[in-house]
Amino acid sequence: MIKGILTIALIFFTITVVICLYRVIKGPTLPDRVVALDMIGVNMLSMIAIISLLQNTTAYLEVILILGILSFIGTIAFSKYIERGVIIERKSNR
């Protein structure tokens, strides 16, 4: 029973990812794509959690954490790139 529900949830998440992917591909502006990418990251995070439930293991908890951090950092980096054109700024006294 629980397994069936989890599988259905997984498929829904996948559909969400596919929709986000459409935005990534189509998205008229760069911010559209970045937001869609961030959303893919979050969805994948949930998917990994569901898979670890399905596989009955705790081995993927680190993956979830890493993915959370990475998707955050990635979005920030992209945003900064869009805003300023550089990601890591040089020190002004150099």
């Binding site: 990994i48 898979i51 081995a59 993956v63 890493i66 993915l67 990475l70």
Partner: peptide
């Protein structure tokens, strides 16, 4: 993740 390789998944993501 799906094929039970957590270490690989970690590394691949980063």
């Amino acid at each position: 993740v799906l094929f039970n390789a957590p270490d690989l998944a970690l590394t691949q993501l980063s």
